[in-house]
Amino acid sequence: MVGGAATAMAASTPSDAQTKRTTMPPDPAAMPVTMPVTLKVNGKDRPLSLDPRTTLLDALREHLHLSGTKKGCDHGQCGACTVLVNGQRINSCLSLALQHDGDAITTIEGLGTPDKLHPMQAAFVRHDGYQCGYCTPGQICSAVAVLDEIRAGVPSHVQADLMARPQASNIEMRERMSGNICRCGAYSNIADAMADVAGAKA
């Protein structure tokens, strides 16, 4: 464990520091200390020194300024914060950055670029899989992982036979994407985009 209050302040944004000043108890022993952690984000090692309370989501957005990953509910209910950790999708809001020392994190910024879209990004554009776009980075990260999970044989609630290979069908996409909420209601186009990438008819 390194540093003290000064390090914590230096590592925070001005608005963070403000909040901490007003909400932290005055006892210096209770002041936040930071801990070192290295995240491998989109292929690059990113060493950080963080207050233990920092979620993976806040580390990505506030400390690494990768604002593609969105904060919706901050309670694991909406899926806007979905990123891939060692290839698996998780809610980055319900994970401490310290839990991910050495982990490979892929955010929407790491999937593709405006010049070279990931096939799932291209399919979302083609099928109009969004309106306001706020949930879209989470939807796309989740959708990429869903197709991997289907390929890996992870069963779902709607699967009739647990011993059969899961299919990339419309009902499967809908069930497997239920952790990603879209208030604009682009669901049917999202399922179409996923079916397109999976090479199946929705």
Binding site: G76, G79, T82, Q88, R89, I90, N91, L94, S95, S142, A145, V146, E149, P155, S156, H157, Q159, R176, M177, S178, G179, N180
Partner: peptide, 11 residues
Amino acid sequence: AAGASGQLRNK
């Protein structure tokens, strides 16, 4: 498989 979401079950 009937509980939570794919993201939560992974964690």
